[in-house]
Computed example of a mutant assay.
Amino acid sequence: MLWEIVLLALALFFAFVFFVAYKMTTPPRRVKNWTPKDVGLEYEDITISTTDGLKLKGWWIDRGSEKTIILLHGYASSRWSFYIIPMIETLAKNGYNVLAFDFRAHGESEGKYTTVGDKELIDLVSAIDWLKREKPNSANRIGLVGYSMGAMVAIRALAEDERVCCAVADSPPMHLDKTGTRSLRYFANLPEWLYPFVKPISKMITGTREVHPITYADKIKKPLRLIAGKKDPIVKVEEVREFYERNKEINPDVELWVTEAAHVRTIQLMPEEYKQRILQFFEKYL
């Protein structure tokens, strides 16, 4: 009888862990009615075909420039995020073309599972391919603004795609396991000790590989602005600073801005200063 109880308890535990892993890899889709036209911007609804067979949905805002900025949302978010929408308006009304799209398994894009920074690089590279093919005169200079998971992808692209000139990475996770552990509590309100059980099942479900952005600190030699918040419960300032200190040894154009904000909330804490700093960065480097 005791062994039966133990086996039943273990079965229930691993069933629960599998459920948690499944839910974490299939975040809720956040879609709203807002479009760039609501702030007076003409736009196109676009579909981007990824190299691994998915269709991603997005917006293209053409301002007649040779410079385009691509906006990259975070995990469990979309192009309707509270930080993407104001950046669309700010960048476009200052003369930049803007491309915003939903990563796989988010918003209106296809894809069953998110891989939190692994296959999302395929999404970004495919978006740049689309831009170069469909809007070649608008793609002479390409910059990125990424948030959380999108910041991870921006950092990877800065190192791996020569077509990207510069990037802003807001609240970028640096260590997969540390961020994953904290995210379990932040997104699911579950104890952090569950993470070692959830992680391998998540990898099995998605077929993903581990991405540790900190390793890119020794590779990037292009302009990069890092933004970290002291009240961020997911990404610690010390971790972003570690990346900054390592990267500045080989990259004279890396910058770090530390604020009092929570995760990706600097744009809410100090909206006007935030927008001006982003614009100044791209005026300088793009």
Rank of each mutant, 00 (worst) to 15 (best):
M1V: 12
V6H: 06
L7V: 14
L7I: 15
A9N: 11
A11F: 14
L12T: 11
F13P: 04
F14L: 15
F16R: 00
V17A: 10
K23L: 04
K23C: 02
M24E: 12
R29V: 10
R30P: 00
N33L: 10
K37F: 06
G40M: 08
G40E: 09
L41M: 07
E44K: 14
T47Y: 10
T51V: 04
G53M: 05
G53S: 04
L54A: 06
K55C: 08
K55M: 12
L56W: 02
L56E: 02
G58K: 05
G58L: 13
G58I: 06
W60M: 12
E66W: 01
T68N: 06
L71P: 02
H73R: 09
Y75G: 08
W80M: 05
F82W: 08
Y83G: 07
I84H: 11
I85W: 00
M87N: 14
T90Q: 04
A92Y: 06
A92K: 09
G95E: 13
G95D: 13
Y96D: 13
Y96K: 10
Y96E: 10
V98S: 14
F103D: 09
G107C: 11
T114E: 06
T115H: 10
D118Q: 04
K119A: 12
K119S: 07
L121R: 07
L121S: 11
L121C: 02
D129N: 13
W130I: 03
K132Q: 14
R133S: 15
K135W: 13
K135E: 10
K135N: 13
R141F: 08
G143V: 10
Y147R: 05
M149L: 15
I155H: 03
I155W: 05
R156V: 13
A157V: 04
A157L: 01
L158K: 01
E160M: 13
E162G: 03
V168R: 01
V168G: 02
H175I: 15
H175F: 15
H175D: 12
G180R: 05
G180P: 05
T181E: 15
R182G: 07
L184C: 11
L190P: 02
P191A: 06
E192F: 04
K199S: 05
S202W: 09
K203I: 01
M204Y: 14
T206N: 07
G207W: 11
T208E: 13
E210H: 00
V211C: 03
P213Y: 00
P213D: 03
Y216G: 01
A217Q: 03
L226F: 00
V237N: 11
E245Y: 07
N247A: 02
E249I: 01
E249Y: 00
I250H: 03
I250P: 04
I250M: 06
D253L: 04
V254T: 13
E255P: 00
L256P: 08
E260R: 12
A261Y: 11
T266H: 14
T266I: 08
T266M: 12
T266F: 15
L269Y: 11
P271V: 12
E272H: 14
Q276V: 09
R277A: 11
F281L: 04
E283Y: 12
E283I: 02
L286Q: 09
